[in-house]
Design a protein around this nucleic acid. Sequence first.
DNA 1: GCAATTGATGTAATAACATAACATATCCGT
DNA 2: ACGGATATGTTATGTTATTACATCAATTGC
Lengths: 132, 132
Amino acid sequence: MTTPMLTKNQSLVFDVLTKAEAPLSAYTILDKLRDQGFRAPLQVYRALDKLLEYGVVHRLESINSFVACAHPNEDCHSHGLVAFAICESCGQVIEFHDHEVDHRLTDWLKSQKFKAEKSTIEIRGHCANCAA
Amino acid sequence: MTTPMLTKNQSLVFDVLTKAEAPLSAYTILDKLRDQGFRAPLQVYRALDKLLEYGVVHRLESINSFVACAHPNEDCHSHGLVAFAICESCGQVIEFHDHEVDHRLTDWLKSQKFKAEKSTIEIRGHCANCAA
DNA sequence: GCAATTGATGTAATAACATAACATATCCGT
DNA sequence: ACGGATATGTTATGTTATTACATCAATTGC
Ligand SMILES: [Zn+2]
Ligand SMILES: [Zn+2]
Ligand SMILES: [Zn+2]
Ligand SMILES: [Zn+2]
């Protein structure tokens, strides 16, 4: 899918996420945008819904947070699973793809006749810097 | 880890999960246990914490719910990742392990010097029965 | 036995995350 | 201009999870 022009609110939310060094919760985004006129959670959630739909933002289920896609110009998203390594110390997220894992899971799902629609692979732990 | 004797509250919560045909939210569990004297969310969350620690229950991050382990007597949990296929129609959950996926992810994490502590692999979609 | 510690429980209040419902406004094709 | 679709604003509410503090019960060390 080619990403359509972003609306005002979508741009504001996307900018905040792009500049952030770690995933942000919807309410953190809301707080960062109060000066730009944001007043209610829905303004954030609605923008996020679209950004997720366009694939330029990912939701990290295990920490109820959102992060800008690290590979915005690759087409991996369209044909592969995305995985995240999330550092619980510094918040840094490494987004990666692995076709081997992808194929393996896809095969298993097929063997079960399970029709996959959305997948989540998240590893929490400590990054190289924080593992010390 | 060998599972210690469960306390009264832990047993009640575990029984509810074991009898359930789909994952349950903490508040759903609470409602099911009101007749047994449960009055507050914390009674459920505290029991769940222990059951998760013992590995007899899993938390499904993507749907904020809990499910009894489907392989209580296997030792896969101690040396491998667990994955879940979750049907969004009937709620059925298939829990599975795949050493190939496991090794592949582990290798990648090692290459990044990322110290993994907790992992989540959840596929949402439709099971064979519901895909129709 | 008995204080001290530890683990489990009870209860109330609050925090954090997410959506429903309804009203306006803006954009766009005709 | 009109009508439909999309985006936005606002209030209220629903859902999930934790903090704080009190009480109770079992265990340990003396
Ligand atoms: Zn991405
Ligand atoms: Zn780190
Ligand atoms: Zn299990
Ligand atoms: Zn199903």
